[in-house]
């Protein structure tokens, strides 16, 4: 028996919004420690990793490990039927071929349940090596979204360059060149408005705008986003899911042949 109840059901709605453009189907791996998902996009350029810890749920029961293969477009359609303040429960029997989503209004006066067929998906989890990143940048998630959106008008790629002075985002194309520089914030009223940079060595990498734009669908999840970069390795774009986990996107850089 698997059952996970989340009073803050809108977190799950937001997680699905942040995945559905990048992934069409994926497996949710459930264990007594929580729920995890790892999947690559169709063109194998990026990888998404989601973690939802058991202790972040209001009720969590997972008698035996199970992997629930789901069509994320369908899951997203179902979750859109839940109101933002609904309590969401996910339920499945052991070795079941379907999953049930239950949405309860806060006053318990409306209860809806939706059943969805599970899929058999080929599991292929990749090993992500432990990496000490050369630069770790934290910035407001909405600021990052704006920067990527603005620079996407100029070209297909964004160059992210991090030095002690700050971080620079650049794009070039037919209409011209755009550069956006962010300095580390000296002092801020709110922690979530801060730009912080932890840098071991300067690093410059080039990434496809298309993917960065899809990652920013997770902006609704968290006030801040963390970018971790090292020379010639994938960028990590991380959004926290409340205090129960994270969505991490890994994006392969564009590299000189």
């Amino acid at each position: 028996m698997f059952e996970a109840r989340l009073v803050q059901g809108n977190l799950l709605k937001k997680v699905l919004e942040s995945l559905k453009d990048l992934l069409t189907e994926a497996s949710w791996d459930c264990a007594d420690t929580g729920i995890q998902l790892q999947a690559m996009d169709n063109s194998h350029v990026s990888l998404v990793s989601v973690q939802l810890r058991a202790d972040g749920f209001d009720k969590f029961r997972c008698d035996r490990q199970l992997s629930m293969g789901m069509n994320l477009t369908s899951m997203s359609k179902i979750l859109r039927c839940a109101a933002n303040d609904d309590i969401i429960t996910i339920k499945a029997q052991d070795q079941a071929d379907n999953v049930t989503f239950v949405f309860e209004s806060p006053n318990q006066e409306k209860v809806a349940d939706y059943e969805m067929k599970l899929m058999n998906l080929d599991q292929e989890h990749l090993g992500i090596p432990e990496t000490d990143y050369a630069a770790v940048i934290k910035l407001p998630a909405a600021e990052f979204q704006r920067i990527i959106k603005d620079l996407s008008q100029f070209g297909e790629s964004v160059v992210i360059s991090c030095t002690k002075e700050g971080v620079k985002f650049s794009a070039a194309g037919d209409i011209g060149v755009g550069n956006i520089k962010l300095a580390q914030t000296a002092s801020v009223d709110k922690e979530e408005e801060a730009v912080t940079i932890e840098m071991q060595e300067p690093v410059t990498l080039t990434f496809a705008c298309r993917y960065l734009n899809m990652f920013t669908k997770a902006t609704c999840l968290a006030p801040q986003v963390t970018l971790s970069m090292s020379p010639e390795v994938p960028l990590v774009v991380e959004y926290k899911i409340g205090d129960m986990g994270h969505v991490r996107y890994y994006l392969a850089p564009k590299i000189e042949d």
């Binding site: 194998h44 350029v45 990749l126 090993g127 994006l251 392969a252 564009k254 590299i255």
Partner: peptide, 14 residues
Amino acid sequence: TKRQKNILSFFQKP
């Protein structure tokens, strides 16, 4: 010109 790398060239299959 830079070429888009594949994520599989960085992360290992089990």
